[in-house]
């Protein structure tokens, strides 16, 4: 299936590039650049919108891919999903640079490092390509759209509040994140630290990094439990961290004594919610995020300005847009508990 997809993509790319490159591809690109986006402005089926996740091979981004594919089917155009196999800064940059050379209509990332794609984005804009980010923001001045899953405040605060409620507002707690270089994870941790000031009897004893890796998170979780005997709760910041921490608590026989929460998706955390080790986790619907992202980028491509509140065909409710930060917001974060863990994303 995957093969069929990239052969089809290759064929598509073939016709486009052949049409554009009679002599020097560089010269052709330069000429075709702005004309390209202008010419096709009303024919959205010719748009090719690319997204480079932090890494491929994890369900969270696969869900975003599914959502964007669904939007592409509904609104027209082609969605291109391509990314490194580990959350690598250079790998992500190479994918973005290649997509720009391929002259897609729009390219976006979930950034592994906020600044690393900025030189590429500058080149893309020169070539008339729309640039955007979703899930993990870039720091580039010229970024044209940021599709945010939920505000950093919303996510960080809800995680801390959830944990505080479970452990009745007192005890030692630890935070385990994937990487110290990921923009979104770092901003959430910053928010969490701020929110913790509201709970004077909660003590943050350690912040650890375990990569986008479940077994590593399990190991780190177990060592934290050992190192801090009064540990009452742990927050996993990336979707891969929470199941590892939950397993560590379970293996230590501390289920019910040490609470685990954090940001992760129902498909990943379901077994631990069902057996009660984890009571609640914080998330948004990544499939909807992918869908909203594709729709939002189409609006930019077609020069349809956003309103303060936008209706999106195929999604329930209204979606806020903040012009100052060019932010399109999915909505408040979702609390996933035993009651709604059967959501499929």
């Amino acid at each position: 299936m995957r093969r069929a997809r990239w052969i089809a993509t290759a064929a598509g790319a073939a016709t486009l590039i052949m049409a554009m490159a009679p002599g020097s591809a560089q010269a052709a690109t330069r000429k075709a650049g702005p004309a390209h986006s202008g010419h096709h402005a009303k024919v959205s089926s010719a748009y090719r919108i690319a997204f480079v996740p932090k890494l491929i091979g994890i369900p969270y981004f696969t869900s975003m891919e599914k959502g964007a594919e669904a939007a592409a089917k509904r609104f027209g155009g082609k969605f291109i999903y391509e990314g490194p196999t580990t959350a690598s800064v250079e790998g992500q940059d190479e994918d973005v640079a290649t997509l720009i050379k391929e002259h897609v209509s729009a390219v976006g990332v979930s950034a592994n490092a906020a600044s690393s794609v900025c030189p590429d984005y500058a080149n893309a804009i020169k070539a008339g390509i729309v640039v955007y980010a979703s899930d993990s923001n870039v720091s580039c001045k010229d970024n044209e759209l940021w599709v945010e899953q939920a505000t950093n405040q919303g996510i960080g605060n809800l995680a801390v509040d959830t944990l505080a409620k479970e452990i009745k507002g007192s005890g030692d707690i630890a935070i385990v994140s994937a990487g110290s270089t990921a923009t979104n994870l770092d901003s959430w941790i910053a928010v969490m630290k701020k929110r913790l000031k509201r709970y004077p009897r909660l003590h943050l004893v350690s912040v650890q990094y375990a990569g986008e890796n479940i077994s590593q998170s399990e190991t780190v979780g177990a060592r934290l439990i050992a190192a801090y005997p009064k540990l009452k709760g742990m927050i996993g910041v990336a979707s891969t961290n929470v199941p590892g921490l939950a397993e560590a608590v379970k293996a230590a026989g501390d289920a019910g004594k040490i609470a685990v929460t954090g940001e992760t998706d129902p498909n990943t955390i379901r077994p631990w919610i069902e057996d009660g080790v984890v009571k609640a986790v914080v998330l948004w619907n990544p499939t909807s995020l992918g869908y909203l992202m594709y729709w939002g980028v189409l609006q930019v491509l077609e020069h349809h300005p956003f309103k303060a509140e936008n209706a999106v065909p195929g999604l329930p409710g209204k979606y806020e847009y903040f012009p100052a930060s060019k932010t399109l917001l999915l909505g408040p974060p979702l609390l996933i508990t035993k009651a709604n863990v059967n959501l499929n994303f």
Binding site: G57, G211, N213, I214, S215, E218, T240, P243
Partner: peptide, 16 residues
């Protein structure tokens, strides 16, 4: 043992 230790299989299983 590793799959037993953290019962989720991903391509990153064992990566380090």
């Amino acid at each position: 043992l590793l799959v037993g230790q953290s019962p989720v299989v991903s391509p990153e299983t064992g990566s380090n």
